[in-house]
Structures are given as C-alpha cells and as structure tokens.
C-alpha cells in the first residue's frame, strides 16, 4: 500500500533535501488566502492541497496569475467549494507566481534491480511526446549528475535560451543529488515527481511535487 503526501508536505521534504521550492503558504479560509497573497506579493497561484488531491490540473484545481485581492478571494471560495466528499481536509496553497519559459521534470523511482534511480527530463506541454528523459542510479558519484544533464537529447534547452540565462547547473545538480540522497536515506519513499521544475532566470524551482510513501505496516 502506498500513501501520497500533500503538495505542501512533499515540497517541505524536498526543501530539506536541497531542492528549491517557492515560498508557499497553507491556509484554511478565503480571508487567510488574501492575507497570504498580500504578504507574498501579487500575482499568486492558488491550489487546493491535500493528501487525497490528485490530478489538480485536470480537475481545474489550480488557479494561476491571480493579481488582485478580489480574484484571490473569489477563486479561494470556488476551490474550497470544489472539494469532494473525502477531501474535507484539503486546504488552500498560496504560492508566488514562478515565471520561466522552460520546464524540466525530475523524480525518483525504485527499480526492482537497481534500486533508487533519479530521473531528469524535458518538461512542459510536449514532455510526454518528446519522452526525453534519462536516469541515474543513486547514490550519485561525481560527474553522474552532470552527465545525466548532458545525456538529454534536447540538452541545449538547458543552455542559454531566447534571452534567458543558461540553467544554473550547480542548482540543478543539487536537485538531482538531493533526490538521490532521499532515495538512499529514505527507503520508505516509493517515488517522487517534481513536475514541473520551472527554470526561473536560470534557477530551477519545484512548482509542484508529489511524494509517494510506502505504507509500513506497524
């Protein structure tokens, strides 16, 4: 049996492992969402967040680019009302808008033969069609993370791109090595999806994440 952490919990875990995540706030009411949005600075993104919430985009539970207090309030009310019968514990996640034209995906999976493996791939709307991903078995040795980046077919997307600086390779290396470390040190983690990891002025930021845990029978 597996259980999934909420987006907020997933990102906390990733932050501790060295993965840059946005300064998110978890709140319960539309009023609190407005306060949080003003503290973060408009515009913000608003999402429904809970352990049972999956397929947020497909269910329209992500509202992006909310630029006024009124918009935040109305969208927060809508989202709270959209909770399903077993989603009563879901809360509101208020996040700064992260901008960048490039997205990558990263993750962790357990292979039956090789154990924990880190993934890096090209993200965005064409991610599945391109299927440009590469894996490395954890733990990563020196050069492994860099060679993982260089083994992507469309690796030039990690370089300077349409006026945006090249991806900060040290930051991306830290993401990959952080995921690998979690894979080695936390055998209870079954998988991690960091999707998307937006490249914001060269810096990768984990805008959404999902950690799946192996439910240990006590």
């Amino acid at each position: 049996m597996t259980t999934t952490l909420s987006e907020f919990e997933s990102k906390q875990l990733l932050r501790e492992a060295g993965v840059p995540v946005p300064d998110d706030r978890l709140v319960d009411t539309a009023d609190a969402a407005v306060k949080a949005a003003e503290a973060i600075g408009l515009p913000v993104a608003l999402k429904l967040c809970g352990r049972h919430i999956a397929h947020k985009t497909e269910r329209n539970l992500v509202r992006l680019g909310l630029a006024s207090a009124d918009r935040v309030r109305s969208q927060a009310e809508e989202l709270l009302a959209a909770r399903g019968p077993d989603e009563g514990d879901a809360r509101l996640l208020v996040s700064p808008m992260v901008s960048g034209r490039r997205e990558v995906i990263a993750g962790l999976v357990r292979d039956p033969q090789f154990g924990p493996c880190v993934m890096l791939g090209i993200g965005g709307i064409f991610a599945e069609a391109l299927a440009d991903v590469a894996f490395a078995v954890a733990p990563l040795e020196p050069h492994d993370a860099d060679e993982l980046m260089d083994s992507l077919q469309y690796r030039q997307l990690l370089g300077e791109f349409r006026g945006e600086p090249a991806v900060d390779r040290t930051a991306l290396r830290n993401v990959l090595e952080g995921l690998a470390k979690l894979g080695v040190e936390r055998p209870d983690i079954r998988s991690i999806d960091v999707n998307p990891l937006i490249i914001d002025r060269g810096r990768p930021v984990a805008v959404d994440a999902l950690v799946e845990l192996e439910e240990t029978s006590a």
Partner: peptide, 26 residues
C-alpha cells in the same frame, strides 16, 4: 518495459532500457 507498478510520472518513464542506459553511462 518493467513498469507494471508505475503510478508516478517518473515510474511511467522508467523503462527497463532507460534505467540500463543510465547504468551504462554511470
């Protein structure tokens, strides 16, 4: 493709061949 138990995006991409490619590179 040994991805019967793939419930995550990462898992869905993790074919037997993809992982082995990584092993060879490393």
């Amino acid at each position: 493709s040994g991805k019967a138990a793939a419930s995550s995006h990462t898992g869905a991409m993790a074919s037997n061949d993809q992982i082995f490619r990584g092993v060879c590179r490393q």
